[in-house]
Design a protein around this nucleic acid. Structure first.
Length: 295
DNA sequence: GGTAGACCTGGACGC
DNA sequence: GCGTCCAGGTCTACC
């Protein structure tokens, strides 16, 4: 079955897909030409479906080969709206960006939305798996998690959904450490899965939280394995852009942009974008660093 | 509040 | 092929 979902203009599916390395992590799958994506979603226990999202007039087309109940279709529509930020209004950011040449492209290219997973649990696990490792390591660890614990599509064994919290909560640290090869991150991922599964931690409520960003940040920092960088990354996914995810790449590019390549710290990165106020995260994320990436 | 060292892995490098 | 070194954020212990 197939249906369409409207997006708040301006919208570009390709821009969202390209906004984040998340598209390279299972259970996302690239489509030809980055014009859409595939994603395997566990809609209910032991029920995984293959979702394809492509461009449609005024929004996106959602296609699933399996027949869905009305409730399942509603649930999947909510997922896709969240994953692509279809309802987001970035007009205030675009207004400011018009005066900055390094952001000249954002409005025309409809940049600003950031690709995310259907659940904050999945995004938190993936963010923890980006820390203190190369991107190749993140891809390897996510792939291992999905292949070992994810529910497979019917009739397949190699195409699986991202594991729900209860599936990870049932395993043990030694398995995650030695077989999934998460290394020292294993206890963090296990503790997170168990806290979410038991109800002690309601991560998904962060999506609609009214808490001020600094307070929400404190709650994210209370999760083991989530430090300043990871918390800022998650806040970006929660549409809170007032903290910067400062990693080694940020230190490098900001140093080259404004500090003549001299060694700098997180304070200098924050200071460089301070005048963007609540939009500083987006300004950093979509800044035209292309001339530096060619180094 | 700030800092040093440990954590774990893959990749680069030298032999 | 093997051993060594380093990069990548966070946590804990300590000052």
């Amino acid at each position: 079955m197939q249906w369409t979902l409207p997006a708040n203009p301006p919208f570009s599916l390709a821009s969202v897909v390209r906004s984040h390395g998340w598209i390279q992590l299972l259970p996302f799958a690239r489509q030809e030409g980055d014009e859409g994506f595939g994603y395997i979603r566990e809609l209910a226990p032991d029920r995984a479906v293959d979702v394809r999202v492509t461009v449609a007039t005024g929004g996106v087309s959602v296609e699933v080969e399996t027949p869905l109940t009305a409730a399942e279709q509603d649930s999947l529509s909510r997922d896709v709206r969240w994953m692509l930020g279809l309802n987001q209004d970035l007009s205030a950011f675009y207004h400011l960006a018009r005066h900055e040449s390094k952001l000249a492209q954002v409005e025309e290219a409809a940049q600003g939305r950031i690709l995310r997973s259907p659940t904050l649990f999945e995004d938190t696990v993936k963010t923890i798996l980006t820390t203190n490792t190369a991107w190749s390591g993140t891809k390897r660890m996510v792939k291992a998690l999905v292949s070992q614990f994810g529910v497979p599509l019917p009739g397949t064994s190699d195409r699986r959904a991202f594991p729900a919290p209860h599936r990870l909560a049932m395993t043990d640290e030694a398995t995650l450490r030695n077989e999934t090869r998460l290394g020292y991150r294993a206890p963090h991922v296990l503790a997170l899965a168990r806290a979410v599964d038991s109800g002690d931690l309601d991560l998904e409520s962060c999506k609609t939280s009214d808490l001020p960003t600094p307070q929400l940040r404190k709650e994210l920092l209370a999760i083991k394995g989530v430090g300043p960088y990871a918390a800022a990354n998650l806040l970006m996914l929660l549409e809170r852009y007032d903290f910067l995810p400062v990693d080694s790449w940020a230190l490098k590019v900001v140093s080259h942009e404004w500090y003549g390549g001299e060694p700098i710290g997180p304070d200098e990165v924050e200071a460089s974008f301070a005048h963007w106020g609540p939009w500083k995260g987006l300004a950093y994320w979509f800044w035209d660093w292309s001339y530096l990436a060619q180094d």
